[in-house]
Design a protein around this nucleic acid. Sequence first.
DNA 1: TTTGGCACTCGCCCTGTCCGAGTGCCAGCG
DNA 2: CGCTGGCACTCGGACAGGGCGAGTGCCAAA
Lengths: 339, 339
Amino acid sequence: MLSERRLEVLRAIVQDYVGTEEPVGSKALTERHKLGVSPATVRNDMAVLEDEGYIAQPHTSAGRIPTDKGYRLFVDRLAGVKPLSTPERRAIHNFLDGAVDLDDVVGRTVRLLAQLTRQVAVVQYPSLTRSTVRHVELLALAPARLMLVLITDTGRVEQRVIDCPAPFGETSLADLRARLNSRVVGRRFADVPQLVQDLPESFEEAEDRATVSTVLATLLETLVEEHEERLMIGGTANLTRFGHDFPLTIRPVLEALEEQVVLLKLLGEAKESGMTVRIGHENAHEGLSSTSVVSVGYGSGGEAVAKLGVVGPTRMDYPGTMGAVRAVARYVGQILAES
Amino acid sequence: MLSERRLEVLRAIVQDYVGTEEPVGSKALTERHKLGVSPATVRNDMAVLEDEGYIAQPHTSAGRIPTDKGYRLFVDRLAGVKPLSTPERRAIHNFLDGAVDLDDVVGRTVRLLAQLTRQVAVVQYPSLTRSTVRHVELLALAPARLMLVLITDTGRVEQRVIDCPAPFGETSLADLRARLNSRVVGRRFADVPQLVQDLPESFEEAEDRATVSTVLATLLETLVEEHEERLMIGGTANLTRFGHDFPLTIRPVLEALEEQVVLLKLLGEAKESGMTVRIGHENAHEGLSSTSVVSVGYGSGGEAVAKLGVVGPTRMDYPGTMGAVRAVARYVGQILAES
DNA sequence: TTTGGCACTCGCCCTGTCCGAGTGCCAGCG
DNA sequence: CGCTGGCACTCGGACAGGGCGAGTGCCAAA
């Protein structure tokens, strides 16, 4: 167990390093913080902290920098979440209030987060898992070619073209459309499969049954595919503030950010409730091993329907970042609840 | 007017510089190209080329590098468009053929272009300006609340919720839907306004006429708003291959790329038909003054409905890049025409 | 007009030196 | 026993000088 003062030293190291981006030495520490002890004492404490793996020296006879483990301790026990200033809160409101639709909300949120934190922002679109079907439309583009349009209660619209095994009459089409809608409208995506499974049998013609099966297959496929969440990222220009050495640092990060799959997995690994901070190597993806990810769920009402967060260097201002992320998430939740 | 050989020297300089990223000297030139003259002669030619502003020396007693003007001449008169190799063509087909919807087509195109050119790819969503209407759907969400769904021949779907001034019967709705579709399906967006302007009058009830007007207003508004083009970018990780000095170079580029407005303007400035290459300072946006933009229109059938292109360092392989951009644009056009 | 020769320039790289921040250790003090 | 001041040591970074070599411009000859 580390003494109170040693924790204080660690906190000071983290704060200074985040501020200056340079390894911090014992003397500088005592000058900038009122630790009440001499540099020599701090050195002893540092030696202990280093033994325990909380800090490290980039090379002999340089100052110390925090390790991932050090940041972890800092975040867990030493740092609070810094509330935003009033102007910042006002900025959030002003910025998000003008949003006209879902795309706009997400887009504005990304820009806002990137600006507030000066880091890369990631915002997941609200999940469709708990969405319900508002309407299913079937259009005949040609005798044996249909278009399926699916409208969800979150205002999202998906469409697919279906090539049918046989021509499908207008009457049958209207019939299918009506039956389909009467069964699935207002239902959750998850419930749809069993609600429609007996539909083909209710058609008399074998050819029609085949077509209906095809249509249903496409519908179900669409629903499943829509579970693949989408997301938006922004503020990548902030990556240039990463550090001096960054050709090598920035590359894998940009690559990781381009892979939506990676990002989705990243957000997926975060806790369902509360804020999650993943530091450095705690991130599974190795391109992100020198970054930290701060994420939190957001949603209208109690449940989180999606997540948002930022990706930045492990050397980041955790309290400030966490404050911004939390504040934005809350306000986006409100916006969604209103609309 | 520059002699044939001097042009040849310029071409050699551009090719070598693009390959090596290093200033190229007279001796190296004669060794790597069969110019049939001695280094001394080449030096004389270089002096002339420098006087004319086609090449420059980064510092005294170093090799020469092409200027923007030099690249311009190279692109206009010295370089052809390099056709893709068979494997590359096959890759395009394989990659794009699996696309399921418009988003997917655009997404795949971006990734493909980024991979082929190893640069940043930008793909504009097909414009609705020249698009035609495939179907207009009207759904009653509530007695006085409709949803308008607009489906375009490029596979794009737009929807709007409309609050009606008065309840609108199911019969009237079916009626309106039928009349609307019979008039606008297959027509261009631009022609829609005059095709529907007399629709309200054909309804007897005053209340219905008001509703129809509202619906039409929303429809037209949707058409107009959709002129705001969307686009997708990818391959930003390729920016890290920019050069050695790139902290300063990459920053403004990333910032410019985040501003969709900038990119849209960029593509907008390109010629309507044929390939456009904007080199260095020819780009209005100053963040892009050390980049070149190669863009081309694409579309199903003869007309271009949108543009796509790549953004890369002025020192890029122009023939290869142009070849890739053109090939991708053509194939995307085909894909769109088929679906 | 081209060519080979030649003197010159200047950036790059390598080396050696110096400096100072920072460390670990130790003896002394409260 | 923990804290402190002192001290010797280490090592990376900045700086200066020197040699190298690529590349140049110019000139006289073919």
